[in-house]
Nucleic acid binder design. Structure first.
Lengths: 126, 126
DNA sequence: ACGGCATATTGATGAATATCGATACACCTA
DNA sequence: TAGGTGTATCGATATTCATCAATATGCCGT
């Protein structure tokens, strides 16, 4: 028996991933929404706004982006569940969905168990 | 005074975002690394692997991706700080960086204060 | 040294995306 | 009703990205 056989990486039965494909797609979609600096700035600006909300006209200047672009990013954040919109007159006020970001972290911790370093302990060789 | 003046969205002094542009770029880069279903599956597969590690040959089949593509995704996850690589013979073993994912969530909670619903309380009208 | 295997890198390609200008829509005021 | 303003949508474009085939690199056993 060669030394390589001892070290071979493909001898153990493959463990099924803890993350289902569908869950992966949903999770990835939300992370993708957070994967843009301007969108993170939007969340930050909105959180820092008066009453925790802001309208589009408050957001274009600090980001140095055109109004259509800001609207586009806001829509992406809304579709991902991070923002809600409330129309008042001609203005659209955006505010954070309180549990959205926390829920994302929680799901990453508990559902997928990716944060626990259980990998080493969890699968004691049967 | 018109009703609109009361409701106008741009009358209050703009609050500076709690997130600096540089931090936003760094944060976004890490989120972007998580914004792909296959990369999330890679993290899950590696976490579920024996001793919390896995080599490339264990990962190509469950994802139905070519070996170069898997290597590419692994590199992205490494560059983002989520994975480390340990070479043993001809094989490369990847494992999770324990604090990386937790740190990302923590930074989202504390550094940017996006998770606290402080927006409403934080800026009491001066 | 040579051949074989696991992995990394390169080049190319099609798809997704960020951005803008132009335009459409909704609401308010005169 | 008409004009003005804030916002959303549409079309176009340049960039980024995911993926693959081909190739290069590095390690092992003969």
């Amino acid at each position: 028996m060669s030394a390589a056989e001892d070290l071979a990486c493909c001898t153990s039965p493959p463990q099924p991933p803890r993350l289902e494909s569908e869950s992966a797609a949903e999770l990835a979609a939300r992370f993708k929404a957070l994967g843009d600096p301007n969108r993170l700035m939007l969340l930050s600006l909105i959180a820092a706004g008066e009453n925790g909300e802001a309208c589009v006209c408050d957001l274009t200047e600090p980001l140095n982006l055109g109004q259509p672009t800001v609207s586009h990013h806001l829509k992406i954040l809304m579709d991902a569940g991070f923002l809600t919109r409330q129309r008042r007159g001609t203005w659209s006020y955006y505010s954070l969905v309180p549990a959205a970001l926390a829920g994302l972290c929680h799901q990453l911790c508990s559902d997928t168990d990716l944060l626990t370093e259980s990998g080493a302990e969890r699968t004691p060789r049967g």
